[in-house]
Simulated scan of single mutants.
Amino acid sequence: MNDDTDGKNEKPRLRAVDGGLADQEARQARARILSEALPYMRRFADQTFVIKYGGHAMGSEELADDFARDVVLLKQVGVNPVVVHGGGPQIGAMLDRLKVQSSFVDGLRVTDAATVEIVEMVLAGSINKQVVTAINRAGGTAIGISGKDGNLIEARKLRRTVKDPGSNIEKILDLGFVGEPSHVNPAVLDALRATKVIPVIAPIGVGEHGETYNINADTAAGAIAGALGATKLIMLTDVPGVLDKSGQLIPSMTQKEALVSLGDGTISGGMIPKLETCLSALRAGVKAAHILDGRVPHVLLLEVFTEQGVGTMIGATRPPAAS
């Protein structure tokens, strides 16, 4: 009877093992991935990652679900993820629906009193709650806040100058209620750190007299990362990372190399402010900054838990080559 019982118990297992070479290889691949990830899980336990979430990754339901699962996994293995989200396209769509005219200067939306109300409604309302819901649906516990909650982001009016091509005289542009962080008060985030809660932050700041300011999400994420002394600032973009003059990905850069690239014209367009934000965060004490392609499924896990990583990492020194 014992032999019959043992045989019955073993048959299903043997059939599973004989399920095919492809099935075995797939399971072995999963085991290798877990084995490779384990040292990084240990290394980053109890470390804070500030993740700027935006671009096309927010516009795809499938990528949004991948992002939510990745953030939940980070929390479950002991990382403290803090999400800062953007929402430019969604704001533009709402302004169009309401027939509110808006314009841009150097990539920044000129924001009058009427527009900033809509910006706050979209960022701190619908978008914030969509991200929170996705993370909760993936098994996490997310809470949505804006930079106004707990005076998290104190802001001042952002001023830009432009040089008149004819007279060569600089004039100050009035961007309305577009702001930049003047001070970050991380107390509310510090209070959440030891809990299971994942904070999701809308980049809205509060001025000295209680006025609302629209803040670029990259800038907000960098300021928050610096204030928290984060281990990593991770910025999800719509490009593979920082590219050289021939269009090839630069896997890693030192701060000095990044400054040289900004000065010699290697970096151009929208990558300039992103790289400047990374450098500002590093100067504030962040250990490393990453610029990743948010269109790649599970890009967070690929960067954090694999040896080669993806995208571009900027740090004080160049990481050692893989052996």
Rank of each mutant, 00 (worst) to 15 (best):
D3S: 12
D6P: 01
K8E: 14
P12F: 11
V17C: 10
E25L: 15
A26S: 14
Q28A: 15
L34F: 13
A45G: 07
A45S: 14
G54P: 00
A57G: 11
M58G: 11
L74W: 03
V77F: 09
V79I: 15
G87H: 00
G88Q: 07
R97E: 14
L98E: 11
Q101A: 14
S103A: 13
S103E: 13
V105N: 05
D106Q: 15
D106G: 04
R109W: 06
T115H: 03
V116A: 07
S126I: 09
K129L: 09
K129Q: 15
T133V: 08
I135E: 10
A142Y: 02
A142L: 05
K148R: 15
N151C: 11
N151Q: 13
R156M: 10
K157H: 14
N168T: 06
N168G: 11
E170N: 13
I172P: 03
G176E: 05
G179D: 04
H183V: 07
A187G: 08
D190W: 10
A194S: 14
I201L: 06
A202W: 00
T212H: 02
N214G: 05
I215M: 05
T219V: 12
A220Q: 01
A221T: 06
A221H: 01
G222H: 01
G226K: 03
G226A: 12
I234W: 05
L236T: 02
M253W: 06
T254H: 02
I267N: 03
L275D: 01
E276G: 07
S280L: 08
A289I: 03
R295H: 04
V299T: 06
L302T: 04
G311A: 09
I314Y: 03
S323T: 09
